[in-house]
Design a binder for these strands. Structure first.
Length: 590
RNA sequence: GGGGUCGUAGUUCAGUUUGGUUAGAACGCCGGCCUGUCACGCCGGAGGUCGCGAGUUCGAGUCUCGUCGGCCCCGCCA
């Protein structure tokens, strides 16, 4: 750097610095060459400072500055000057000053970048990821990483005051059944054996409780080999916590404090814990989902009992066969066009709904609807009352098996919320969802599987039902939902060996299989395991929401494409034959 | 595994509906002019494997089939 030493960043200098001699280093963001005076916006991670090359001030340096181009790396030494009257830039934090350059060092040149590095241009994801180091040089992307750093700092600071211990757990571990597909790593020294990358540090953090660590946390990578989404990457980061001698209320309190300090540190927002709570049963009943967006109403209304004996065969049959008829009232939407209704019908179709019945409530409460004629006056009036229907409203109905009704109406509700502008994007609405079912029946596997995971404790009063009516047992699991997005979940764990064995039985995991795969856990549970529980948060999703982005890729430095590739490194790549042989792998491809 | 959508200059896009002369625009880039700009301005210029491969046709950016890739979604994600 030619003996120059940086004195300030590009977001440091203000009016009080006028007169100081400073040295800045950074990238050429933009140049405005007037033939005479030349302006350069110099950029670093912190911001922009306008540096000026004036031939009257220093002719030699001005001459040299003509060659400067986008993204060249510079060191400039000069004097901070107050901008002339009327020339300040209120859009820049450094807009009151500029640096009159007396010495210019070109630290590196740059090819013309493959895409503009401003904040406005929308570049295709492929190109952004291929040149991610350029993409991240953009100030808005840098801001995301900076905010993520601040979030991690706030989390650590808060948990440290609460007597937590940060402990690392293995990345090379063993596959456990249930849950997502594992990433496998072959073992060279143990031919035919494989490590699995952790889907979460679940068992290790429980073992840390058995070890007496009492309060553990870790900001840790987790791996799941499943298909990607805007909010799902194959490797993602969890804020993982576990606590001993606690029950649900302790977890809620600790994490509400942590989330509050996180929001304060990153966005300056004062949240008001405690967050509202809702049981799983209530959430699915009112919103059709276990992650309700409570920023707007438009709740689902059950009509199953009302239409059980009605004249409309579709509804009647569904009700008779144990299905469900639910509805929602889109207030004031009776002016929706035929196309709107067709679009929405198609929309709910992708969630399995075979149709979307609708009613437009006209003058005097009269029904305009293809299905109006199937109902008696009394039935219509009964439904209208239940739905609070008024003139100008649009009523939607879905009749099917419960899972389809709930999901399609939950999604229809969100879609209507978006279309009608019901969502206040500036608010953060948290809700704890509690009392999840412990188990659900899996039609493919022909057995019950854990809704949360196999180490989740059942509610005391439901334990008796574990083997007789497993589907009715409620668990001590909880999720934290923010604006309709699941940002975290956890549970109070099973801490006694016999209870864990009964759980495996309920899951149709044989004692032999349990011994083979979970012997280490069962042993630990009979060697003084304390009562414990915990929770884990999706850091990427939290940051996505805090940064106001639609994809977690925007808050991850080097994310992967939807096909789980990295355009920058071109991972995954082919392996050398020799490497595979060393791993005792004999591929039958190529 | 499935559905949708996009792929044209370095970038972002128009052109594809209804096949037809030399594929356009803006920004960027290159050159010239310019001493107060801040998305500087003005003048000029260069720049194209229309993702790839077959096919239909006198003729394909445009139609058909296949294929590759980006994105969104369903399934999947304890």
């Amino acid at each position: 750097m030619g003996g120059l030493k940086r004195s300030h960043t590009c977001n440091d200098l203000r009016a009080p610095n006028v007169g100081e001699e400073v040295t800045l280093m950074g990238w050429v963001m933009r140049r405005r060459d007037h033939g005479g005076v030349i302006f350069i916006d110099l950029r670093d991670r912190w911001g922009l400072t306008q540096v000026v090359f004036n031939p009257v001030f220093n002719e030699e340096v001005h001459e040299k500055a003509h060659s400067l181009r986008s993204e060249w790396v510079l060191a400039v030494r000069g004097k901070v000057e107050k901008r002339p009257e009327g020339m300040t830039n209120p859009n820049l934090t450094t807009g009151e000053i500029e640096v009159m350059v007396d010495e210019l060092r070109i630290l590196n040149t740059s090819l013309t970048p493959p895409f503009p590095l401003d904040e406005e241009s929308e570049i295709s994801d492929n190109l952004r990821l291929k040149y991610r180091y350029l993409d991240l040089r953009r100030l808005d992307m840098a801001a995301n990483l900076i905010m993520r750093h601040e979030a991690c700092q706030a989390i650590r600071a808060h948990l440290n005051t609460q007597n937590f211990l940060e402990v690392e757990t293995p990345i090379l571990t063993r596959s456990t059944p249930e849950g997502a597909r594992d990433y496998l790593v072959p073992s060279r020294v143990n031919p035919g054996r494989f490590y699995a990358l952790p889907q979460s540090p679940q068992l290790f953090k429980q073992l840390l409780m058995v070890a007496g660590m009492d309060r553990y946390y870790q900001i840790v990578k987790c791996f799941r080999d499943e298909d990607l989404r805007a909010d799902r990457q194959p490797e993602f980061t969890q804020i993982d916590m576990e606590l001993s001698f606690v029950e649900e209320e302790d977890i809620y309190g600790i994490t509400e404090g942590m989330i509050a300090s996180l929001f304060k540190a990153t966005r300056g927002i004062d949240l008001q814990p405690p967050f509202p709570r809702m049981t799983y049963a209530e959430a699915t009943d009112r919103f059709g989902t276990d992650r309700p967006d409570i920023r707007f109403a438009l709740e689902l209304v059950s009509l199953t009992d009302i239409v059980r004996d009605c004249g409309f065969k579709v509804f009647q049959t569904v009700a008779a066969k144990g299905g469900m008829v639910k509805s929602l009232n889109a207030k004031g939407c009776a002016d929706f066009s035929r196309k709107d209704l067709d679009d929405l019908t198609e929309y709910v179709g992708q969630f399995g709904a075979k149709g979307l019945a609708w009613v437009k409530v006209k003058q005097g409460g009269e029904w305009q609807s293809p299905i109006a004629k199937f109902f008696t006056d009394a039935e219509r009036s009964n439904m209208a009352t239940t739905l609070g229907a008024e003139e100008g409203d649009l009523l939607f109905f879905v009749a099917d098996q419960p899972t389809i009704v709930q999901q399609s109406l939950a999604e229809l509700r969100l879609e209507l919320g978006r279309r009608l502008g019901l969502v206040d994007k500036s608010t953060f609405q948290f809700v704890w969802v509690t009392d999840f079912p412990l188990l659900e029946y899996d039609n493919d596997e022909k057995r019950h599987v854990a809704v949360h995971h196999p180490f989740t404790a059942a509610k005391e009063e439901d334990i008796g039902l574990l083997l007789s009516e497993p589907g009715k047992v409620r668990s001590r699991a909880y999720d934290l939902v923010l604006n309709g997005i699941e940002i975290g979940g956890g549970s109070i764990r099973i801490h006694q060996k016999d209870m864990q064995e009964r759980m495996f039985t309920a899951l149709s995991i044989s004692p032999a299989e349990a011994k083979e795969k979970f012997d280490f856990l069962l042993k630990a549970l009979e060697l003084g395991a304390p009562p414990h529980g915990g929770i884990a948060f999706g850091l990427d999703r939290l940051m996505m929401i805090l940064a106001g982005k639609d994809s977690i890729r925007d808050v991850i430095a080097f994310p992967k494409t939807q096909k789980a590739t990295c355009p920058l490194t071109e991972a995954p790549a082919k392996a050398e034959r020799k490497q595979l042989t060393e791993l005792s792998l004999r591929p039958d491809w190529d």
